[in-house]
Amino acid sequence: MDNMNLLGLLFRIFIFPGFFFLLIAALFLHWLDRKLIARFQGRIGPPWYQPLADLVKLFAKEDILPSGTNLFFAALLPLISFASVLTASFYLPIAIQSAPSFQGDFIVLMFLLSLPSLMYFLAGWVTQGVYSVIGGNRSLLQYFSYEVLFLLAMSGTAIASGSWSLADIRLAQIKESPYIFPQIVGFLFSLAGLIGKLKREPYDIPKAKSEVIAGALTEFSGKKLALWYLTIQLQTVVGLSFLIHCFFSGFWQMSTFSGFIVFLLLLVILQGMLSAISAIYARLRIDQLVYLNWYIFIPLTLLHNVYILLK
C-alpha cells in the first residue's frame, strides 16, 4: 500500500466519515433533539455546546462503582458497545462510499447495532443494583420485540433489491426510485424499531426515570457513563444513516458536496421526527409494547414483506 492510500485511509477512519465527523454529528443531533423537544414543550432549550460540556464534565468526574462490581467487566461493556457502534459506522456509507461492500454486510451492520443493547443488559447485571438489574431485564424483554421488528422492516429493502449488500441496495434504488415511496410502511416500522433500539420515548421502558431511576446505567458514573451516553448518541447517527441509506438512496450523488448536504438534511429531518414522537407519546408499558410489536407491527411488516416479495 502506498503512502497516499494509507493517509487516505487514516483520514477516513479518524476524520471523515470516521470518528471525528461521527462525533460532531452525534453531538449536533443530540443537541438538536434536546432543543426540539424543548421547543415543542414551550421552552427555550440548551445552547449548542451543551452535549460537549456534558461529556467533558462527565469524563472529568470521579468514577465510582458499588463494591462487589466486577471492575473489568464494568469497564469492558461500555467499551464494547462503543466499539461496535464505531465499527458499524465503517461498514455504512455515510455520505461517501467508504468501506468495501460485500454480500451480507447488511446483516453485519444489524448485528453490530444490536450489540449495545446486549451490553446494556449485561451492565445491569454487573453493577448489581436493584434498578440496574430491572432496567437490564427490561431492555432484554424489549430487545426481543423491537429487534425483530427492525430487522424485518429493514429487510424489505434487501428483498426488493434482491441482495444483502448495502451497495446493491443503493444501486437498486438509483436504478428505480428511492424505497421511501413504495415502502413507506416499512420505513415507519423501521423508525419504530430504531426508537426501541435507542431507548427513546415511548420505548424508553428500560430507563424509565419514574420507575427504575436510570435503568442499567443507574450505578455508572464518570467516564463510563460518558461512554454510554456517547454510544447512544453515536448509535442515533449510525442508525439514522442506515435508514437513510436503505430508504432514501438515490436522492443524492455519492461523494459530492451537494450529496453531503442532502444527506445532512435528511439526518436532521429524521431526528426531528424522532424528537416529535418523543414529545407526543407517553411511555408504553412493557406488556403494551410487546402486544403492539408482536400482534400489530410485526404481522403487518411480514405482510408488507410478502407483498414486496410477490411484486
Binding site: 424543548a38 414543550q41 421552552r43 445552547p47 460540556a53 465510582i64 426515570k209 431511576i213 436510570a214
Partner: peptide, 18 residues
C-alpha cells in the same frame, strides 16, 4: 417553560451517581 433552566445546561438527574 417559565424558568427553563435547561437553557443553562441544568438537568434534574435521578441517580446520585450522575
Amino acid at each position: 417553560p417559565r424558568y427553563d433552566v435547561e437553557r443553562f445546561g441544568i438537568l434534574k438527574e435521578s441517580s446520585p451517581r450522575h
